[in-house]
């Protein structure tokens, strides 16, 4: 069974003065249980709308969406769901302990289970020192920790996280990333949107890219970026003019950086030949590195192609 499934999911926001806006256009995705799925797209691509439909906050205009086989319009579909909004807001007059207690009650947890939830989550999210302080006045990072704790109340097998690292400092980002990895290791299904592509690349099994409400690419990260390296970088120091010229002529790209010559070759064989020539000339061969496309490069390329397609 799929943890998340959508078919032809469409959302049109109706506005009498500004006209209708199609925010999501026939989105079909399937996320298997235990999978870590990254949801990418520029601002306004439809990521948050999709997440809001899945979490029961927005009603779709057409199409279907389900969590563990239960239609998202049925509240029972959210029994196995933990949700962290992009900017989590909680009742400011409550303390973190009262907040966890409140959500535990809403999820129908028994007093014993609620006490266990607090023990587990306060330790995991480091909430004990602020347990009795009111949330009013808490920093973004502290609120994000509480948001994560709320999402984990009842230990749900599916987590939907909307931009979980947005607006956090490096320490906060690192701690959220570790939490996500921990949930992944526990076998939870994770579906999250993020602008921090480096994190997505490190954490996710599969990603999909959304542009203007449409799904433009979907697949395993390795597949999308290409399993094969898209070039080989050769770095040398101490090359003289005579030796440098033929190597640079054979390379796809040549630049000098802090006294080093950096050559990029399309083929591994050409790189090997260049390395041999460098050694024969008496210069030092610093490194030979296969180059892989980053998710960021891939994303920018896809985004550029879609924007150009839409503009044509």
């Amino acid at each position: 069974m799929h943890a998340i499934a959508t078919r032809g999911l469409t959302k049109v926001y109706k506005n009498l003065t500004k006209g209708n806006k199609r925010s999501l256009d026939e989105l079909s995705i399937h996320i298997r249980e235990g999978e870590v799925f990254g949801f990418l797209g520029h601002n306004g691509a439809g990521k948050t709308t999709t997440i809001k439909i899945l979490c029961g906050l927005v009603r779709q205009s057409a199409g279907e969406a389900s969590l563990f086989g239960i239609d998202v319009r049925d509240p029972a579909s959210r029994a196995k769901l933990g949700y962290l909004p992009e900017q989590p807001y909680f009742y400011e007059y409550l303390t973190p302990r009262e907040t966890i207690e409140f959500y535990g009650r809403l999820r129908g947890r028994t007093p014993q289970q609620r006490a266990e939830d607090w023990e587990r989550l306060s330790l995991l999210l480091d909430l004990r020192d602020i347990a009795e302080q009111r949330i009013k006045g808490f920093s973004k990072g502290m609120r994000q920790r509480i948001g994560f704790a709320v999402a984990l109340v009842g230990d749900p097998p599916l987590l939907i996280l909307d931009e979980p690292m947005s607006g956090l400092d490096p320490v906060g980002r690192r701690s959220i990333r570790q939490l996500i990895l921990r949930c992944r290791d526990e076998g939870k299904t994770l579906f999250f949107s993020s602008h921090v592509l480096g994190d997505v690349e490190q954490i996710c099994d599969r990603v999909s890219i959304l542009s203007r409400g449409k799904l433009v690419r979907e697949g395993r990260i390795g597949q999308l970026l290409g399993e094969e390296p898209h070039g080989v970088e050769v770095v040398a120091t101490g090359l003289n003019e005579v030796s440098r010229a033929p190597i640079a002529a054979a390379a796809r790209e040549h630049r000098t950086h802090e006294g080093q010559d950096v050559f990029v070759f399309d083929e591994a064989a050409a790189a090997q030949e260049a390395a041999r020539a460098i050694l024969d000339s008496g210069a030092a061969l610093e490194s030979v590195t296969p180059l892989k496309q980053s998710l960021e490069e891939f994303f920018m390329k896809e985004h550029g192609a879609t924007a150009a397609g839409a503009g044509a």
Binding site: L57, P75, P85
Partner: peptide, 14 residues
Amino acid sequence: DKRTLYTILSQPMR
């Protein structure tokens, strides 16, 4: 307005 509703309506409640 304060978006406190997001985490409440995403619970299994009507």
